[in-house]
Design a protein around this nucleic acid. Structure first.
Lengths: 140, 140
DNA sequence: TATTGTTATACTCTATAACTATA
DNA sequence: TATAGTTATAGAGTATAACAATA
């Protein structure tokens, strides 16, 4: 493990730069970060209450109301009712939403691997070897 | 290397989830992603023209005008003139801007290593072993 | 005439405060 | 009275179009 604060900050700077790189891989005139992330949650974990989505995304309930309204307007998600509680709004992804995620993902994978191709085989191997660990890190 | 499209997309999904994780490591009521990234460019590469910053950040010139105006209002950056070309605005980071980056970085490093501590030693080692490769990837 | 930057306008995204409807 | 969600309002962040100043 890295013991010194300076060493830890150096690693954090690398993550900072990696974050900036991944951010540029995002198609611009597309979904916002929160909209895309919300759609991914619906895709992978199924329907959610609006308030659950707000909590998972770390935004307020009014902000999520708007995000869901825009997703619904664009036919990427739908609002539904909860038969057991009239106050609740249940949000789900639509087939068009799944399609969009699929296309975005393919486009990003292409750009990412084009970048990885510019690295040395050793660097590429080091990154790919860390993928399972990153996957578990992202579970946190 | 990973040959199948499905395999590449799986790797891209891991990066997507990693991106979401790093995004949540960001202190909220703080700088925007673009403002922070712009400040980092000024910190690491020195003063830039406003148009250079816009190009590096991938935003329009009017958007960067506003970002710089807010940074200047908050005393994190300053506008200066170019003695050789009266049209040009040269932007530089202030000591307060450097301080802010330093504090953000320390806070992020702390959160990041608290997360890494929850992984197995093997996973942690795999991620740390990939750091130099990521650093070179971020140079792209 | 071309380049550099700003201003005008409009839309997304976010927050806090106030509100409505249901429990 | 408490909870789930929406509406109202304000500010950041972005884009395109139009403009001003300098080269």
């Amino acid at each position: 493990m890295i013991e010194t604060v300076a060493g830890q900050v150096a690693v954090a700077v690398t993550f900072e730069r990696l974050f900036a790189l991944l951010r540029r891989l995002n198609p611009p005139h597309d979904l916002s970060l929160t909209a895309a992330s919300t759609l991914r949650i619906l895709e992978s974990d199924g329907p959610h209450r609006l308030s659950e989505l707000a909590a998972k995304e770390g935004v307020t309930q009014p902000a999520m109301t708007q995000v869901v309204s825009r997703l619904e307007r664009d036919a990427l998600a739908v609002r539904g009712a909860d038969p057991h509680d009239g106050r609740v709004v249940v949000v789900d992804i639509t087939p068009a939403g799944r399609d969009l995620l699929r296309h975005r993902r393919a486009a990003r994978a292409e750009k990412l691997f084009a970048l990885l191709d510019t690295l040395s085989p050793a660097d590429r191997a080091a990154i790919l070897a860390a993928i399972p660990a990153f996957d578990r890190l992202a579970d946190r």
